[in-house]
């Protein structure tokens, strides 16, 4: 546990230091920054939370090669420290089935970002293996100025804010509280064999809520966490998108 925290803290402080450097170079201060995917993946991995296979690429050819080796379908995501809401700027393409359409998607992203956010520095394009479709959840966390760290669980995907089927606890939480959080939501019925479907892996979800609770309470500088969507299967979960805000 001690080593785990040390490693995790290192990732976050390195990211912060790199951001400071960029700020100096550009003579501009940003208060909150978002870890890029690879950093988020590394951080979550320390706590046993899985993200899909992903590779950062610099050219279309490189992306095609990586996609081929990890297998289609894949998603492409722009990687930039200047973009927090990637899909809003046209920086995400999903469900890419072959090499030909990958090229089109790749060029789309570059031109979308150049049009929408011309000043954004693009670090590259991420090729990510698409996880199979399943029930989408959200696991989140934040630091409240009065009560300190808070964790959230609920139904995920693009309707999170519209449906708001979520439960909250002050962190840190224990195993029992993590399970209670799941059971309090309507999402629970979807996990628990809804209409004779297979029961989904509630325990790994609960363990992941616990891990997020650990990250928000134990890792300095982490302010907000959004794991959304979290795809849950009969055995295991995959976090498709992770937004980890540090200050």
């Amino acid at each position: 546990m001690k080593n785990t925290l040390k490693e995790a803290n290192k990732i976050v402080s390195n990211a912060l230091a790199a951001e400071k450097k960029r700020e100096l170079q550009r003579n501009k201060q940003k208060k909150k920054i978002c870890l890029i995917e690879l950093q988020a993946k590394e951080l979550l991995n320390i706590f046993g939370i899985k993200m899909p296979e992903m590779k950062l690429t610099a050219t279309t050819e490189e992306a095609q090669k990586e996609a081929k080796s990890m297998g289609f379908p894949v998603a492409l995501k722009v990687v930039s420290h200047d973009i927090i809401h990637k899909s809003d700027t046209g920086g995400v393409e999903t469900g890419i089935k072959d090499i030909k359409s990958l090229k089109v998607s790749y060029e789309n992203i570059i031109s979308n970002v150049k049009t929408n956010l011309p000043k954004a520095v693009i670090k590259g394009i991420l090729v990510e293996k698409m996880a199979p479709v399943s029930t989408e959840l959200i696991i989140g966390a934040l630091k409240d100025p009065q009560f300190g760290p808070v964790v959230m669980f609920g139904l995920g995907g693009i309707f999170v804010e519209a449906i708001s089927d979520v439960s909250f606890r002050l962190a840190p939480i224990n195993e029992k509280e993590a399970l209670e959080m799941i059971k309090e939501t309507k999402a629970f019925s979807l996990l628990n064999g809804f209409r004779n479907q297979q029961t989904l892996d509630i325990y790994t979800v609960a363990k992941s809520i616990l891990s997020v609770s650990k990250i928000i309470t134990k890792i300095e500088h982490v302010e907000e966490i959004d794991l959304n969507p979290v795809l849950v299967y009969p055995n295991g979960i995959v976090v498709v998108d992770a937004k980890i805000i540090i200050v």
Binding site: K32, D144, V160, E161
Partner: peptide, 16 residues
């Protein structure tokens, strides 16, 4: 900056 932050109103945090 996050969905979590957007949903977590003052009241939800009091409840927690």
């Amino acid at each position: 900056h996050s969905h979590t932050g957007a949903i977590a109103g003052n009241y939800e945090i009091y409840k927690a």
